[in-house]
């Protein structure tokens, strides 16, 4: 598993870890129930503080991507892919709402909007 930390990024270090581990899970590089490195060994390998990695793991756990079992460590949570899909659909819905709002304020008709959507969908 690759985790690359940038010191000059605007993103806090814990967030960089969260995003990269999430990405590994989404892309299937990390499988369900696969063990993650311990908080302390990850801190050592990345040369960051224990609290920072702990915060990243807490965040991942809160979002349902990993589970931590006392004394055993942290694991990739089961069924995270559906969860993930759901959260991604939610993002799409939010963006569509924005688009519709912008389209209405520009007086676009539904069919005009649909046409635009079709073009973008096929292009991207």
């Amino acid at each position: 598993m690759n985790i690359i930390i940038s010191n000059s990024s605007d993103k806090p270090i814990y967030e960089q870890i969260v995003d990269q581990i999430k990405d590994h899970i989404i892309k299937g590089y990390l499988n369900e129930l696969e063990p993650l490195p311990s908080i302390r060994s990850l801190a050592k390998d990345l040369h960051i503080s224990v609290i920072t990695t702990k915060r990243a793991y807490d965040e991942l756990e809160k979002e349902g991507f990993i589970v931590t079992i006392a004394g055993k460590g942290s694991f990739v949570a089961a069924q995270n892919k559906e969860l993930l899909r759901e959260s991604r659909i939610k993002i799409v819905e939010e963006k569509i709402a924005e688009v519709v709002f912008a389209a209405k304020s520009a007086n676009l008709t539904y069919s005009e909007l649909e046409e635009m959507l079709r073009i973008f969908y096929e292009e991207v």
Partner: peptide, 12 residues
């Protein structure tokens, strides 16, 4: 030296 410290606090 920092690496040595990291090793030490592997023990919580």
């Amino acid at each position: 030296i920092l690496d040595i410290l990291y090793n030490l606090i592997q023990d919580e």
